[in-house]
Structures are given as C-alpha cells and as structure tokens.
C-alpha cells in the first residue's frame, strides 16, 4: 500500500476520510472520562458522526482506487506515513478547552468544505457531503456554545480557553493549503479549493471569539506535512493504540 493512491480522486477522498477518522478517535478517547455525563454522550455522538463519514469516504475511495480495500484495511493496516489527515485533528485532547477549541477550528472548516462539496462532480461524494452538512452543523453549534461559555465565563475558564486556542492556532494554516492534487481536482470539479474557504472561516471564527471575549492569536509558525504523511509526535501513539488490537489479532471480531 502506498501513501498516495494512484487515482487522484481516491487520494483526495483519503484526506477527507482520514480527517474524520482521526478526529473521531480523538473524541472517542473522552468516552467515560468527559467532565460530565451529558458531555460524554455529546462528544461520543460527534465521534460516531465522524466515524460514519469516514466509512462512507473509505468505501468510495476503495471503489476509485480499485484496491478492493475494506474500511478496516484503511483504518487499521496503514502506517503513520500513509495517513494524510491534517495535523490539527491529531493533536492531543488536552483539557476540555483544548478539545473544544480543536472542534471549533476544525468543524467550522469542515462545514464549509462539506457545503462546497455538495456540488462536487463526483455524485457519490456530493451525496456524502449533503448528509454530513447536517451532522457538522451540529458539531459547530456545540463547539460555539462551549467556546462562548468558557471564554466569557470565569477567570480560569477564560484563561484555559485562550491558552487552548493559542496552542492550536498554528495548525489551522494547513487546512487552507492547496497543492497539485487539489488544483487538478478543482479543475475537474471534484474537489474544493481550500483557499476559497478561508474568508468565511475567518469571519465565523472571528465572530465567535469576539462573543467569547477572546483574542484572536496572531499568525506565527505554520506547521504542515499532514497531507504528505508527515505527522506530529502524538499521532504515532494514538495510531498504535487504535490499531493494536486489530494488528495483534488480525480479523478479530466482537
């Protein structure tokens, strides 16, 4: 298996799918240890939405790259360098504020992306996007509600929310990067030009941060590489945990 699928559309779908799967697993790590029971259910609901989205995308990618790989093959039998998710989604959960900040930054981006992909010339991708728009709208709503309450809450919640935002902000630059693959697929009407989503993303995030009485961090360093399979340190540990059972007991079933 190679990091970049031969079919460009399949390679693009893997990026979308890996974003969903990795964030889904991060959220699932909150299961049984969220700050409150209600939030435990909320976070795992979002994780399940994302898992469902990733499954549909892997199935479509498998059709396009002709490899006949199953969803499990993509999730459990690829190594770190073969995952092409963005760096933002793989960052550790941290405290609740970090998880919520990551969710605000990513879901806002993902919602814009899904909306644009509803017009993709790949009809199956367009259908997946149309379903995902509703789910992701709720993810944004959930994140916004918390960011406003924690940002505009107590001294401690404000401090933590701001620290979380500051630590994750550098990873947002990568979301809007284009490369040869996206440019090629944008011409064919399959993909969205990530750069085109930037303005609306900026507006939405700025509005939320203002309401939350938070400071928008200044642009600083902009780590990148996720789309080429170059990941940050925490990702390897996450993947090892996620894949351990399947790799130790191939074909294990409940």
């Amino acid at each position: 298996m190679t990091a970049v699928a031969a079919d460009p559309s399949a390679a693009y779908l893997l990026r979308l799918a890996d974003d969903c799967l990795v964030l889904s697993h991060r959220l699932a790590q909150w299961s049984s240890r969220a700050p409150t029971l209600e939030e435990d259910v909320a976070l795992t609901n979002i994780a399940l939405d994302l898992l469902g989205q990733s499954r549909a995308l892997y199935a479509r990618a498998s059709e396009l790259d002709g490899s006949g790989r199953s969803e499990d093959d993509y999730a459990y039998l690829r190594d770190e360098r073969e995952f092409v998710n963005c760096l933002l989604v793989e960052q550790e959960n941290g405290d609740f504020a970090v998880t919520i900040a990551r969710q605000l930054l990513f879901s806002t981006f993902q919602l814009l992306q899904w909306r644009a992909l509803c017009d993709s010339t790949d009809m199956q991708l367009a259908a997946i996007a149309a379903k995902a728009v509703k789910e992701t709208t709720y993810h944004v709503d959930h994140a916004v509600l918390w960011v406003v309450r924690l940002g505009d809450g107590t001294d401690e919640s404000h401090r933590r929310m701001q620290a979380a935002l500051d630590s994750l902000w550098p990873y947002t630059a990568e979301l809007f990067e284009d490369d040869e693959l996206t440019r090629q697929l944008v011409t064919r009407g399959v993909a969205v030009d990530p750069e085109k989503l930037r303005e609306q993303w900026d507006q939405t995030v700025e509005r939320v941060l203002r309401e939350a009485t938070m400071q928008q961090p200044a642009a600083s360093w902009a780590p990148t590489g996720g789309r080429q399979g170059l990941h940050t340190e925490p990702f390897g540990y996450m993947l090892a945990e996620m894949q351990h059972l399947h790799r130790s007991h191939p074909g294990a079933r409940w």
Partner: peptide, 20 residues
Amino acid sequence: SLHAADAQLALRNARDVFTR
C-alpha cells in the same frame, strides 16, 4: 432530567442524551 449550566446547554444535552 439532566444537569446543565443554562437553558441552551440543557437543550443540546437533551438532544444528545434523549434523542439519539
């Protein structure tokens, strides 16, 4: 019933806990 800090959060918690 459930715990929540305010009405909007209660509504969302209810959605997540009771309408799955």
